[in-house]
Design a protein around this nucleic acid. Sequence first.
DNA 1: CTGTTAGCGCTTTCAG
DNA 2: CTGAAAGCGCTAACAG
Lengths: 352, 352
Amino acid sequence: MAATLADVATRAGVSAATVSRVLNGNYPVAATTRERVLRAVQDLEYVVNGHARALAASTSDLVGILVNDVADPFFGLIASGIQGQTGGEKLAVICNTNGSPQSELTYLTLLQRQRAAGVVLTGGAVEEPEHTRAVTERLHRMAAAGTRVVLCGRPPLPGLAGLADLPVTTVAFDNRGGARALTEHLISLGHRRIGYIAGPVNRTTTRHRLEGHRAALRAHGLGDDDGRLTVHGDYDRSSGYDAAMALVRRAPGITAIVASNDTMALGACAALRAAGLDVPDDVSIAGFDDLPFSLDAVPALTTVRLPLHQAGIRSGSLVMGTVPTPPGGLATVGTELMVRASTAPPRTPPPA
Amino acid sequence: MAATLADVATRAGVSAATVSRVLNGNYPVAATTRERVLRAVQDLEYVVNGHARALAASTSDLVGILVNDVADPFFGLIASGIQGQTGGEKLAVICNTNGSPQSELTYLTLLQRQRAAGVVLTGGAVEEPEHTRAVTERLHRMAAAGTRVVLCGRPPLPGLAGLADLPVTTVAFDNRGGARALTEHLISLGHRRIGYIAGPVNRTTTRHRLEGHRAALRAHGLGDDDGRLTVHGDYDRSSGYDAAMALVRRAPGITAIVASNDTMALGACAALRAAGLDVPDDVSIAGFDDLPFSLDAVPALTTVRLPLHQAGIRSGSLVMGTVPTPPGGLATVGTELMVRASTAPPRTPPPA
DNA sequence: CTGTTAGCGCTTTCAG
DNA sequence: CTGAAAGCGCTAACAG
């Protein structure tokens, strides 16, 4: 079918080894010979067979990027940051797991089959003991086989009995801190009954952000009403809409709603408008992530900025091995509170 | 390092061929033998080497998806549609070209190296004779080598002298028709001076949408003022903002602005607000694509719906070969005008 | 500087 | 039903 190295060698009148050398440029070759080989390559439209090369050299030029949802800019931003670091040498492949543990494992297998040079898992991890163990084991195995593993936006892997410490690097987000700062902002504005739209259950991100939120409440002597002020969504817009509706119906007294991501916050804004409530005059709304569109919302969304693209770049260079591993294999990226127009003091000031 | 087929064979006390057979399940093997082999696989934590397999069987389980911008939901939606069709057997890899011709070619090379089973190019193509020729040639070459090629959201490849018709399937969008319908909607509302925010120059999508827009103008005896009503952006929000600013400054009389995608339309809305203009009372605004957030904008955006996810699914099954090629290798997906709150009759009705 | 010689790990006839 | 053997296309010592 396609031309092979041998074909090129024959046509150039040299040995296969020589062709390989000029192609890889890692060995001295006479200028005139190189010339001849290059011409043969052109003539034959030769393109090296990646599989044969990978097999012989036991190297791979695949880097896998696992994301929960490609259509969500949160992941797109991270992924494009990573991909920018892989240059033209590695094929950075984005795998969409849809947040399904099953699919996550499947992709990991596929990447393991290809002996991927690296893999980065992005976003919150599913918190299910069995799955966590399965992923951890497989990741350790891959790392042991030489695959560079980095986690971006999820907590470090739990230690595994019997497994040596392996080069699994983590770029974690300070979800707790960010969430806490956000809720504290609302409290300082005077809000006392604050609704919370959490992410999907059993996700690290969901838990951490919720913990930050509750820590802020507790620090100010506020409760969350036995969880009646918390509703779970699944990070997409319509779930934010539904959750906000449920919240205003269930707890009419709330003066603010914190959504655990911007997308749901926007859905919540839409729900409030539909319910005839003004943002922020009747109810303040805040999000998390600071995706590009948050600035455009009306009113502009108060949120917690996560340097997604930068975190992607960091993870990308880590998985490519172009920057040294941070001490302890863990780098935490901070968050920044972005106060905008969607939050304001409650209409009725709280009793002093 | 990792266990090999031979290791498994030894441990199971069978030949490598037998192991291969039970693994691929494409040949009769005694139940008890299979059992033994499977246990050995487990014990050794064996994972087939994809490269060796691909080399020996000359098959690949990679499917490439080229997108201009992963962080843009337009592509995310298409990509997730495609990926949903590749199941757990093929590794659907998303490659981010950033709209760079150079990078597009690089990824194509990488995929060609891996002898990808298929590749789908999404979104508008760069219109530059040289680049078009290069891409077309390479695609033909890949198709000739057995890679299934599908174009999603871009026009069919130009015929190439000396190359037989190859199985390059196209799922095209009716950008012209959609754009025309949109502008006609505005005209029917009474608008006469309509600004247009086009996409990047030299892109098929840009050209087609612009052509549709102008066709509508012409059909109603309207001109575009020697192009003074048209500004180019690059499909992202800030360029929409800048373009709208330029438009209101340059042509104060406009009563409507059509942006060639939703993202820029939202940027334009923000610009108008910043300029103290109301949408749609002072100026109507319309977009294109109908991305999820368009419904959430305030006011909700009038736009042209493109069944992105569905087109992705279609392209995915085409590249997997699970559905027959449409007649002529071309399937066009239609558009639907979504009239919402961002467009209204101009404040000052035009002179009858 | 260049050619020879072994494989890399798997699939696939071809014989049992 | 199972094994032996011959590659798939390339790289990497090892000799010249």
